[in-house]
Design a protein around this nucleic acid. Structure first.
Length: 235
DNA sequence: GACTCTGTTGGT
DNA sequence: ACCAACAGAGT
């Protein structure tokens, strides 16, 4: 039953939206002149998708026809980004959706900073706050017999985490929880440990610096960054 | 039960 | 010195 297609299966992003937890954050769109603020990540993603669709159709109407299958040069209109993405529509989508993901992690980082008032904060300038790091070619789930492909990191990481739920709850699962990512055989003691471990495969980050945009795989690294960047500025 | 933090290790 | 990954303890 499992598809043996090398390219994997295309995931339906909308189905995953219900698994996203709502929170109190307000996500601000920074596409072009847009100032829209949306409190729900799924709606925020849809909003951004509209910008992308408008931009892509404006490209198609202004460009020479009959170039399908060839790489196109897309310009990201996200403020302070201005990346040029050479590739297909999916490559461009992945890039822009990463901005949505980034916005969410920066909201989380901001909330963490305000809740721990008194601690030093990053004092780098905001020049790089919307830079997107090198992305993997594809957001493809490496779990055994899955191979789902996503163009939206918000849904991709949520999906990958769901694989850990095949193990029983508790901090000491009988027999342990084994990682079934291609080429990995790591055994950990609980599904929570597995969720932590699996980030080393998916490259998921859990928080971003609201000041400089830096991405971090855990809160400790984020706090270290805040201290370090406050320290180096005061030296 | 579900995280979250902290200290250690090992690689660059 | 820096960072990723991990184990065990703490909340």
């Amino acid at each position: 039953m499992a598809s043996s297609k090398k390219s994997g299966k295309k995931a339906d992003g909308d189905k995953q939206s219900s698994t996203l937890q709502e929170c109190d954050y307000v996500y601000a769109c920074e596409w072009g002149e847009c100032e829209e603020e949306i409190g729900d990540m799924a709606l925020f993603v849809k909003h951004i998708a509209q910008h992308v669709n408008e931009y892509v159709s404006s490209l198609q109407s202004s460009n020479q026809p009959g170039q399908t299958g060839q790489a196109t040069c897309f310009s990201c209109n996200w403020r302070e980004c201005e990346s040029q993405i050479l590739g297909n529509y999916c490559d461009f989508n992945r890039h822009v959706y990463f901005h949505a993901f980034h916005v969410r992690l920066k909201c989380l980082g901001k909330a963490l900073l305000t809740s721990s008032c008194g601690t030093e904060a990053c004092s780098l300038d905001g020049q790089s706050r919307n830079w997107i790091p090198e992305l993997p070619e594809n957001l493809i789930c490496g779990w055994k017999d899955c191979e789902l492909i996503y163009d939206n990191p918000v849904f991709f990481y949520s999906h990958v985490n769901q694989h850990c739920d095949e193990y029983k709850e508790g901090n000491n699962v009988v027999g342990g929880a084994r990682c079934k990512w291609t080429g990995c055989d790591t055994l950990v003691r609980s599904k929570y440990k597995l969720k932590e471990h699996i980030r080393s495969h998916s490259q998921e980050k859990v928080v971003a610096c609201p000041t400089c945009g830096g991405l971090f795989a855990n809160r400790t690294k984020f706090i270290d960054h805040q201290k370090r960047q406050a320290d180096t500025a005061s030296k």
